[in-house]
Nucleic acid binder design. Structure first.
Lengths: 140, 140
DNA sequence: ACAACTGTAACCTTGAGAGTTACATATAAA
DNA sequence: TTTATATGTAACTCTCAAGGTTACAGTTGT
């Protein structure tokens, strides 16, 4: 959803876009978007102004926004969910399985982020523009 | 949880282990384990017998079980959840953002699996054994 | 026969994420 | 300065997946 929002902002190229408009593209409620914007602001990806005729716009060029930074801006917890209950500490496996897996999982997540870093918002935008070059129906 | 179960089976080295015992190590209900076992069977990782005095044991050597195969055996859906509602198709971004992201996300997941593939169950087992070499308290 | 297992159905519980309503606040423009 | 247009945020509800639980049918060694 975050990538979608940023893609719209990139598409609009600097123009101030309201949360209502973003919500209509994502097909969700404006409040859901407004909950997302502060995260993207904190990551320095967008800038948002208040008041009439305002909205959000990108703070960096799409070429300089990599998908891993979007991932980190938005994603709070690990992709691998830990046990809800802690394993049986009296069992030798239960005792140290978590720390053993933590290392493996965090390096797996790093690998995933490195792969995400290979794509920029500009790459996404290019695909979007290429796709609608034939049938250009822009609305709202 | 699947890795935990397999690690216990590796630790017990061929011995038939009951779902009740596995559950006590993971600290969960035996039924949860029994729901997991068929997935590991289907992936050819374990073998389970029925009846009195039976249980599960590994079908391959721990050295030959890589974590990515465990991941695929257990994980059904993608780590990146798709939009619950489809985006606004009238918006050029909404129209093709999903297919654009699908490609990026699946290659990111591939990268993650390749990283997981670098670790085998034997590696996990080694950590476990090293960890409890000092304070060996084996129970149940 | 019986006890020790797995398999599975049918439920409840929990937590995260999204969706919704309502309202306070900020601000450009009339 | 007033008003329409925005964001920010609290306080819910909805939904769904994962785990947890109970109960019981089926299987097999002893």
């Amino acid at each position: 959803m975050a990538v979608h929002v940023l893609a719209v902002l990139a598409y609009k190229d600097g123009e101030a876009v309201t949360s209502t408009l973003l919500a209509s593209s994502v097909n969700t409620n404006a409040v859901v978007i407004r909950r997302l914007l502060p995260l993207l602001q904190a990551a320095g990806l967008i800038e948002t102004t208040k008041g009439a005729g305002s909205g959000s716009h990108l703070r960096k060029k799409p070429e300089r926004i990599r998908l891993d930074s979007i991932y980190r801006a938005v994603e709070t917890d690990e992709p691998f969910t830990a046990h809800s209950k802690t394993p049986n500490q009296a069992c030798p496996v239960g005792y140290c399985i978590q720390s053993a897996l933590d290392k493996v999982f965090s390096s797996a997540e790093c690998a995933m982020q490195e792969e995400l870093a290979k794509t920029t918002l500009a790459d996404i935008l290019k695909i979007v523009k290429a796709s609608c070059s034939g049938s250009d129906k822009k609305r709202k």
